[in-house]
Amino acid sequence: MPTRDVQTLSDQELLQRVAQGDEDALVALYDRYGRLVYSLAYKILQDHQLAEEVTQDVFTNVWRAAASFDPKKSRFTTWLTSIARNRAIDLLRRRRARGLTGGRETELNTAITRADERLSPEHHLQALAVREALEQLPPAQREVLELAYFGGLTQREIAEHLGIPLGTVKTRVRLGMLKLKELLSPHGPPGNGRSGQKETNALEEQSKVRKKGV
């Protein structure tokens, strides 16, 4: 096996090495994404101890499952964040069932924080692009996406939580996700800035009209 410095390897190359039992490669992935995984878990659980537990589980899971990862089916970061999110949400739901959850942040972070200065350039650009795209969504759509992704709520639970009709939640989730996908696609959106928000608002209105008509 070539002895290139692991820090210079791509995620996929590192994962291949992890699959062959290379602990240094796993640690290199941890150095690259440990903070993201830990912060995501903390955002969901609002508990540093549990975030630590999730982060540990995620990377030991990567160690065990590296050989089964298929880059044709998913990007590595999508796979990693989905493991982290799913594990954290499982814990959150168990704690919720036991009445143990406390207060939770309800706003998506669209501000650039000082901690971002420590991000890799790629991660920094990704974070900027996602935040910029989110700012183009109507707040009501951002809210339901946040409650689903970070709060682990189903659409029905979101409707109960917000006291709005289930159909409205479904529309917001669908339009919010489709707009976000469009804005973050490699080909870019047809418009940007305020025009993007207007388009999304118009789409939501059209959808309401269509639903009423059905």
Binding site: T78, F150, L180
Partner: peptide
């Protein structure tokens, strides 16, 4: 594509050092 979009939300969290 939708899953990749959904999990990009992870990049919006405030960062903490483990």
């Amino acid at each position: 594509l939708l899953k990749e979009t959904a999990h990009l939300l992870a990049y919006t969290v405030p960062l903490y050092d483990p």
